[in-house]
Design a protein around this nucleic acid. Sequence first.
DNA 1: CAGTTGCTTGCGTGTTACGTGCAATCGTGC
DNA 2: GCACGATTGCACGTAACACGCAAGCAACTG
Lengths: 269, 269
Amino acid sequence: MGGAMRQEAGAEERRRLRAGDRRELIARMIQTDGTVVVEELARSLEVTPSTIRRDLALLTEQGAIARTYGGAMSAGHTAEPTLGQRSGLAVAEKDRIGRWAAARIVPGDTVILDAGTTTGRLAHHLRARGDLTVITCGLTALRELAEADGVELITLAGTLRHVSQGFVGPLAELTLSRLTADKVFLGADGLDARLGICEASLQQTSLKEMMADRGKEVYVLADSSKLGQSPFTAWAPLDRPWTLVTDSGATDDQLGPFRALPDAEVITV
Amino acid sequence: MGGAMRQEAGAEERRRLRAGDRRELIARMIQTDGTVVVEELARSLEVTPSTIRRDLALLTEQGAIARTYGGAMSAGHTAEPTLGQRSGLAVAEKDRIGRWAAARIVPGDTVILDAGTTTGRLAHHLRARGDLTVITCGLTALRELAEADGVELITLAGTLRHVSQGFVGPLAELTLSRLTADKVFLGADGLDARLGICEASLQQTSLKEMMADRGKEVYVLADSSKLGQSPFTAWAPLDRPWTLVTDSGATDDQLGPFRALPDAEVITV
DNA sequence: CAGTTGCTTGCGTGTTACGTGCAATCGTGC
DNA sequence: GCACGATTGCACGTAACACGCAAGCAACTG
């Protein structure tokens, strides 16, 4: 140990923090930055990696953080059932659908993204893009693109529906009435070939209807668990030609009614 | 490979999943359980740890999960250094200011929150409140209150300024023209007793001016580093009575000009 | 003020997890 | 039936980790 603990007593030695303060600082850094690296902490706090590891082990035990290989990260929202579970239901499918939709979007496009987790995945795949204008009423998409400097991001106004993390209401429709787009990507809580998109409230269906009306091309992104479902009683009819994008887990029984529609194209990914 | 890949051809061999399905299953398990362990996954899915690691690496790349030492966990919202670092400049002061402002807000109030980190802290302290309507053009405040079921949250429309994480432009002003509030809380990049609030663009000052006009009481939240500063050339004058809320680190030199104003009240916390 | 106790730290050692290249195998399309 | 891409198990080298040990530091005690 430490003969070398205080390795330099020279003039420029910075006062070293005590253990408790250091740990608190580490915890705060993790909360702020999201992730930290052992080696960097060791250098900036002027202690050995061993000590940092001990600190991190302690903080992990307290539940404040989570270890990663070579560092640590925020553990804050480990279990967040509200949105987490819901979005966790078909992550892989939603991601594939989102990726396909992102490939459809070309430079110069202006697109409208509905609220929802699937459109959120779509937004995720647009982060690195440029020369693109995105209009959205969804907080998930907003989060994904908040730091995407290359994307011009326009949000609709409105009241936030906490459960769906989207803006709805008269203000949303007011602002939408000032905009149009090349392509519109809608989500759905349920989808029926005859009735259209099913949602929990008329506010949502009303907005979806208007969004569909404001774009040249309409895409409905819905994983196969949504097809043929009508969990609620509010509907947004699909009058104009549209494209259904779903995952390959959809059965022929599910897809049949949609394939029979004259105005709808069906894509499975 | 593996001569042993199919290690037991016996009767009780369970059909093994294909790669895509297995990864989806892993993603779902992580979303559901929060965390998983490599070794356990390898056993239950009957593949080697190597394969699990490869799967996890893939899912990590997609952003769906985050690796930990020996396993993986839900990714949630991690790694946002851009804003995180910036907001780290005077966290304690901003937080005190935000807390004071939150205490000023009473049940039944409708308040307007400007974009910025300080108003973000204010929003943070409103999360547990109820019987409250918040109107905001700031993504930070929006994030804080997205899960706050007790708060009615209305967002202004507009184009996102990525650097300030706020919405500005004609759509923001259009929607604001349909709303009024009891109290308005503004942030500032710089503040001058004579000239008012200093910002990087006229879009921002124009919106601030309008926000100030739409509320009965106007508060300007600015930590002491902002007082007397004019980092940019666009200004929003403060014509009506207003309250400056800053931190106790402000010097008398800084506060003097504001105390001399007939229409302004000065609070230090 | 000296002695003691408890905590913290740096270092060394063995362990564990990680990532990658390679060859065998499976699935798929022609 | 055959060829090609995707996937997997294994082996190996590397990096990070956990733990024990002894030395310093701080605070408390008599």
